[in-house]
Nucleic acid binder design. Structure first.
Length: 409
DNA sequence: TCTGGGGTCCTAGGACCC
DNA sequence: TCTGGGGTCCTAGGACCC
């Protein structure tokens, strides 16, 4: 692609913005989304007012509570509302480009190739100016119609567009002209490039590589041990070169592959403060029900189950097993999960986290009639839950837990 | 910075087959 | 009976993203 026509649209402090729409008293106040003050968990999103105090997404709520000023509002966040506003934002941007792909709940990629004549207005200096003005109109529409602030980057490649949208924040639009990519990127810290996380950043710093310009010039032998198979791609991205396609839709919406396999995984995990073996087993049953129910809803069977276990000292391990034949039945999942749990639980230390992941998914061909009594039972459970809510039905093991929980505050 | 919960993708070792 | 070397699949772990 010679001209910058790929756009990355990012909704600024998305979760905070949605919470402010739901509760206007939060407007103008410092806001942290993720949980109540001094509670557990981490920050999902922080408003610019709190960021000034060093609060960042991913930080523990505890840490954020210490840094944030007294008047800060801590809110849990409403997942349904977030999904709803995300869908509405998508509907708006689809008016501007025929090719839109959601990369996450608050991020969309759009292709404006071939739209120059369509959007031309007298006064536009050139095609780039036409596209940039159009994207400004688009972010304006999102702000006006939904009340959500948005930023956008426009470039010749996906990674450059993504970085540009970050540079444009808050509520800005940045078009990176063809040929200027390397110069825009060179002075930026390596961490700004998608694909370089905290670990690679530290290792690169140890070599004296702090900017993307330095990364571009670094010899392959230096980068390879750190970036592995990503080395070539990251080096190109650091010069602004990368895919000029909007890419794939998120796995949840993705089509299955020709072999009858379904891409993606289904997982669920729970972190708990203090727990002994009894609670852990209750949590395990709950996890089986959740992933099983989600698999049945998607009409898939799992060919692999993996258990993740984290001790209080953060030692984390996983144990997985192929499931033959594939299943989505709670009790079968539970039997395997219990096995894996016993295998994994080798240390006599309290557990901090338990998780289950279903993988090797395939379409449930026997979806139509329910042959197996186990599947029948699970389907019945799903029906009850649809009508009366998730907690209406539980496996026996989880039930004991629910009863006990009633006594707690 | 003492760390949620949902994902994707890569790596490395071992089993197994020919 | 000990020996290739290649290919593929499985499992566990880790880095990264939002």
């Amino acid at each position: 692609m010679q001209a910058p026509r790929l756009c990355c649209l990012d909704l600024d402090t998305f979760f905070v913005s949605v919470e402010r729409l739901l509760d206007p008293s939060l407007v103008g106040r410092p806001v942290v989304v993720g949980g109540r003050r001094w509670g557990g968990g981490v920050v999902t999103s922080a408003s610019y007012e709190v960021r000034a105090f060093g609060v960042r997404a991913g930080m523990s709520i505890r840490e954020a509570s210490e840094r944030a000023p007294a008047e800060t509002a801590f809110v849990a966040g409403n997942h349904e509302a977030h999904s709803d506003y995300s869908a509405r934002a998508r509907a708006i941007v689809e008016r501007f480009s025929p090719l839109v792909v959601a990369a996450s709940i608050d991020e969309h990629y759009l292709d404006f190739r071939g739209c120059e004549r369509l959007y031309y207005r007298a006064g536009d200096a050139d095609d780039d100016a036409t596209i940039e003005r159009t994207v400004r109109e688009m972010t304006g529409a999102v702000a006006r119609e939904l009340g959500l602030p948005a930023s956008a980057g426009i470039a010749t490649s996906k990674p450059m567009a993504k970085v540009a949208s970050g540079l444009a924040k808050p509520q800005g639009v940045l078009l990176v002209r063809a040929g200027t990519e390397a110069a825009v990127l060179a002075p930026l810290p390596v961490r700004k490039l998608p694909g370089i996380g905290p670990v690679s950043e530290t290792r690169l710093h140890a070599l004296g590589i702090t900017t993307l310009g330095q990364l571009v010039d670094a010899p392959d032998a230096q980068l390879r041990p750190i970036l592995g198979a990503y080395t070539a791609g990251i080096r190109l991205a650091a010069r602004g070169i990368g895919s000029d396609e909007v890419g794939r839709e998120r796995p949840a919406f993705r089509e299955h592959d020709p072999h009858g396999g379904v891409s993606g995984t289904i997982s669920n995990e729970r972190t708990f403060a203090e727990t002994g073996p009894t609670t852990a087993l209750e949590v395990l049953s709950g996890l089986c029900e959740r992933v099983g129910s989600r698999a049945r809803r998607r009409g898939v069977l799992a060919g692999q189950l993996t258990l993740k276990l984290r001790y209080t000292d953060f030692d984390t391990l996983s144990r997985g097993r192929a499931i033959a034949p594939p299943t989505s039945v709670d009790v079968e999942l539970h039997r395997i999960a219990l096995d894996l749990y016993r295998e994994a639980r080798t240390r006599d230390l309290p557990i901090r986290l338990l998780g289950l992941q279903l993988a090797k998914l395939r379409l449930d061909s026997a979806q139509l009639p329910l042959f197996d009594s186990g599947e029948k039972r699970s389907a019945a459970v799903d029906k009850v839950r649809d009508r009366f809510g998730y907690h209406a039905v539980h496996l026996a093991t989880t039930l004991g837990g629910s009863r006990r929980r009633k006594n707690r505050p």
